[in-house]
Amino acid sequence: MVRLFILLAAVQLVLFVLALISCLSAARVRNAPRLVWVLVILLIPLLGPLAYFLWGRPLPAPEEGTVPRRRRAPSAPDDDPDFLRSVDTEQSRREREALAQWEKELENGEPDKPQGSA
Rank of each mutant, 00 (worst) to 15 (best):
M1A: 11
P114Q: 06
E90V: 13
A76Q: 15
L47P: 06
K113V: 09
A32G: 05
L35W: 09
Q115C: 11
L7G: 07
N31K: 06
E64N: 00
E90W: 09
V17G: 05
K104V: 02
L20C: 04
D79Y: 13
E107F: 09
V36S: 15
S25H: 09
R3K: 10
E95W: 00
V40S: 01
A27H: 14
Q115S: 14
L99M: 13
R34N: 06
L47T: 10
P68E: 05
L20F: 08
P81M: 05
V14G: 03
D78F: 14
P58Y: 03
Q12F: 06
V29A: 00
S86E: 04
L59I: 06
A118D: 12
R71P: 03
V17H: 09
L39M: 00
E105D: 05
A100C: 08
G48P: 07
A118I: 06
V2A: 15
L54Y: 05
S117I: 14
F5V: 14
A19M: 03
E95I: 07
A19P: 00
P68D: 01
R94S: 11
V17N: 01
L99T: 13
P49V: 10
P45I: 02
R72W: 12
R3F: 04
T66I: 02
S117N: 11
I44G: 12
D112G: 08
P45N: 11
V14I: 11
A27F: 14
V67S: 07
D88M: 04
A10S: 06
V87K: 02
D112H: 04
S75T: 15
G65P: 08
W102H: 14
E95D: 03
E63K: 15
G109M: 05
L43S: 15
L4W: 15
L15A: 10
E103K: 12
A51D: 11
F5A: 15
V67T: 03
S22Y: 03
A19T: 02
D112E: 09
W55I: 04
A9D: 15
P68V: 04
A100V: 05
L59Y: 01
A19H: 01
D88V: 10
K104W: 10
G116I: 01
P58H: 08
A10I: 01
D88A: 03
K113F: 05
V14W: 04
F83T: 03
L24I: 09
M1T: 08
Q101H: 10
R85V: 00
L18F: 11
R96T: 05
I6P: 13
K113W: 08
L54H: 09
R70L: 12
L15F: 00
R70D: 01
G109T: 07
F5R: 14
L47E: 06
G116N: 02
F53K: 07
Q12R: 10
L15N: 13
V87M: 01
A51E: 07
G56P: 10
P58S: 09
L24R: 04
A19C: 10
S22M: 11
L106N: 07
L35V: 13
S92C: 12
G65L: 09
